[in-house]
């Protein structure tokens, strides 16, 4: 568990967003004195232990374009999500991704509706689906994703663990 994301709202110096693995996404209401959980924040995911809980969601990253600080994008443990009201309500935008598990999410520096993720197979298998390193881009703020592969390894990405003298694979 760690606090991995801190986003400053350029239009409101009193508003800060933070995200914490296994805790959720939070924003300030009045400076630092009153952190509130985004009440309807991540309740859409059916795979969360308690989908209606205010806290306890495993948020891996949130991203924002500085020109539109009320539009947030989230890569959750599972699910890629979007909020158009600064986190009051989130909806899923994973659509045609090969997996909606992942860690990074980011917004293009000059195109607020262009976002990027790197899908990972699952939380127990931390490698890209099919062993191909693919960045996925949506130019529509989610839901319509295209794979970006030019220049990225599409084979031999996964290496077999070295064998011991007795021929058995080393446990990780």
């Amino acid at each position: 568990m760690c606090l991995h994301t801190i986003l400053l709202d350029p239009s409101n110096p009193d508003r800060i967003f933070v995200a914490i693995s296994a805790a959720g996404a939070f924003r300030t209401r009045r400076c630092w004195q009153d952190l509130e959980a985004d009440k309807q924040g991540t309740q859409i995911s059916l795979r969360a232990p308690d989908s209606t809980a205010e806290v306890g969601h495993c948020v891996h990253r949130i991203a924002m374009h500085p020109s539109r600080p009320s539009v947030l994008f989230m890569q959750k443990h599972w699910d890629v999500m979007r909020s158009d009201n600064a986190g009051d309500l989130w909806h899923e935008v994973s659509d045609n991704l090969p997996s909606d598990f992942g860690f990074p999410i980011d917004v293009h520096a000059h195109e607020p509706e262009t976002i990027y993720v790197v899908p990972i197979k699952s939380d127990s298998e931390h490698f890209p689906p099919d062993g191909k390193l693919r960045v996925y881009r949506s130019r529509t703020g989610g839901n319509q994703w295209e794979a970006l592969t030019n220049g990225l390894p599409q084979k031999r990405l996964l290496r077999q663990r070295p064998a011991r003298r007795d021929g058995r694979r080393l446990a990780r």
Partner: peptide, 27 residues
């Protein structure tokens, strides 16, 4: 306007793109 995008991997590579992700190079 183009902007550089970068990401790193646990395999020890850093990739960069100067065309919004259309092409990547291992830096």
């Amino acid at each position: 306007m183009n902007a550089a995008s970068t990401f790193g991997t646990t395999g020890g590579q850093v990739y960069a793109s100067a065309d919004a992700g259309d092409t990547w190079n291992a830096v």
